[in-house]
């Protein structure tokens, strides 16, 4: 399996995406912002199609749109935590724009380009070039580094925004930076598992980790580990059964881990620490 170049590329990129999604996802679930992640995944779709319709680099559209989208979602809400109605309204329209770009793109471009929409929606992890792999690893490292830099104040602000603000933690700008970070990770994951499925890597491993432990660092490690395991198991199964699309297996594995964690008795009560 490892002799195949496309498989090595998929494993390296998948691991980078998995770790970034798992770590950022832990905070997304803690802050109850999975819906914002969902919205950003759809913004990624529109951004990529806009870039395709306008003839600029796909990746520029992808990252530009999601990072801007993250800041917009944060800016609209109180304390950079937008309520779900505002998010829903905004991204319903974003999707509509995506449809327009898809129509423009498929009428202007050649017929073979019709597959681009599907690629953006569902990913193409087995079709990555060496340059793609390098970019994804660098971006994942950047995302993890930013997260590590803001992790402590972000944790404080997420658990008790009022007290954190009184102590001088910049709660609002932290929220904005965090949503921009979610945007970055969303764009990164779109290239691997597609815009529609990245929620599986963002929410499911983190949800399982939150269920199993209330300790922040243990939770982060578990979440990253679960996401990584989902990617590896998913890619292996997709290699063995070529009928099944890789993104489906990756996400199904992540959800299976989540379901298993939910059926276990909570360890949180045993290991809960009082902050």
């Amino acid at each position: 399996m490892l002799a195949q170049e496309f498989m090595r590329h998929a494993l390296v990129t998948g691991s980078a995406v998995g770790i970034a999604c798992g770590l950022v996802g832990w905070f997304v679930v803690l802050r109850a912002q999975v819906f914002a992640g969902d919205a950003l995944s759809h913004v990624a779709f529109t951004g990529a199609l806009a870039a395709a319709a306008l003839g600029v680099d796909l990746r520029a559209g992808l990252f530009g749109a999601t990072i801007l989208g993250g800041v917009a979602i944060g800016g609209l809400g109180e304390r950079a935590r937008a309520d779900d109605t505002v998010i829903g309204t905004l991204f319903a329209w974003t999707l509509g724009l995506g449809v327009l770009f898809l129509a423009l793109f498929t009428t202007n471009g050649s017929a073979t380009n019709g597959a681009a929409g599907v690629r953006v929606l569902f990913g193409s992890i087995f079709g990555l070039s060496t340059a793609d792999v390098r970019t994804s690893v660098v971006l994942a490292a950047v995302a993890v580094a930013i997260l590590a830099a803001i992790a402590r104040p972000l944790l404080y602000a997420s658990l008790d925004a009022g007290v954190a603000a009184a102590q001088g933690v910049p709660v609002r700008s932290l929220g904005l930076v965090f949503l921009a970070l979610v945007g970055l990770v969303a764009a990164e994951a779109t290239q691997a598992v597609g815009a529609l499925l990245l929620l599986g890597l963002l929410a499911a491993p983190a949800g399982a980790a939150h269920r199993l432990t209330a300790r922040p660092w243990a939770g982060l490690c578990l979440s990253g580990g679960f996401a990584l395991a989902s990617v590896w198991v998913g890619l292996t199964l997709a290699y063995v059964f070529p009928m099944v699309p890789p993104s489906t297996v990756i996400v199904s594995t992540a959800v299976a881990i989540y379901a298993a964690a939910m059926s276990l008795p909570s360890l949180g009560r045993l290991t809960r620490v009082n902050p």
Partner: peptide, 21 residues
């Protein structure tokens, strides 16, 4: 709220993954 949001997200991801399959 955070538990509900993770659960909803997981259900959605699974639904989409199956749809694509």
């Amino acid at each position: 709220l955070s538990r509900e949001s993770a659960a909803t997200g997981s259900v959605q991801a699974l639904a989409l993954a199956l749809g694509f399959l």
